Simulated scan of single mutants.
Amino acid sequence: MASTACFVIVSKNGIPIYEAEVGSALKKEDLAHQHQFILHAALDVVQDLTWTTNAIFCIFRFLRSVDRFSDFVVSVYVTAGHTRFLLLHDSRSNDGIKSFFQEVHELYMKIFLNPLYLPGSRIASSHFDTKVRTLARKYL
């Protein structure tokens, strides 16, 4: 597992709907704010790349590493509905990261298809959080 990893799901309106520190490093308040800042700054790059990639008709777009800050890399996965999954990490396993994104996308679709879920609202499910953290341990 990566020693540092922060995972965020951002709605198509730019609102974070899920956040998790999934790394094995000690969680410090200052680092959490720094991670959020780095991921927020990467959203502009993601917006530009989303419209310039040739994968217009794909169900999803795995944009790999779109931004770097110090030893951190931001990898992004964009769904067909323009929901963005951002992962801030310090590892190099692109296959593991892609598998992580794909399985989290499946979990997200189960939440999204729930008739009681309001699209664009925060995901507060403890089951979803547990599954995401399990997938992070498995793939990152």
Rank of each mutant, 00 (worst) to 15 (best):
T79E: 07
V73W: 10
L63Q: 01
S70L: 10
V66N: 04
S99C: 13
D95Y: 15
S99K: 15
L86R: 08
A80G: 11
S93R: 14
G96I: 10
G81P: 00
V76L: 06
D95G: 12
H82L: 12
D67H: 12
L86A: 07
S91K: 12
K98D: 09
F69T: 01
V76T: 12
L87G: 03
L87Y: 13
S65Q: 11
R92G: 06
V66S: 03
H82P: 00
F72N: 00
L86E: 04
L88V: 01
L87T: 03
S91R: 11
V73I: 06
D95F: 14
L86Y: 05
L86D: 01
S70G: 07
F62R: 01
G96N: 11
R68C: 04
R61G: 00
H82S: 11
L87M: 13
V74K: 02
R68Y: 09
F72W: 06
S70C: 08
S99Y: 09
D67K: 13
F72Q: 00
F69N: 08
T79V: 05
V74F: 04
S65W: 02
L86K: 10
S93G: 10
T79W: 08
S93I: 01
H89E: 02
R92T: 08
R64C: 04
G81W: 10
L87F: 12
N94S: 11
S99H: 12
L63A: 02
I97D: 04
Y77I: 00
F100W: 10
V78L: 12
L86W: 07
R61D: 01
D67L: 12
H82M: 11
S75N: 12
H89Q: 11
N94W: 11
D71Q: 09
F85Q: 02
V76I: 11
K98F: 11
V74P: 02
R64K: 15
D67Q: 13
H82V: 02
T79P: 03
S93N: 15
F62G: 00
L86F: 07
L87A: 09
F62M: 03
H82F: 12
F62L: 04
S75H: 10
Y77T: 02
R84T: 09
S93A: 13
K98G: 02
V76K: 07
T79D: 05
S65I: 07
N94R: 15
V78M: 05
D90T: 12
V76N: 03
F85L: 08
T79Q: 05
T83G: 01
S99W: 11
F69H: 13
R64G: 02
V66L: 07
N94Q: 14
V76Y: 03
S70K: 11
V74M: 05
K98S: 09
R92N: 13
L63W: 05
S65P: 00
F69C: 05
R64F: 06
T83F: 13
V73C: 06
V76A: 15
I97W: 03
G96Y: 15
S65D: 07
G81D: 14
A80E: 12
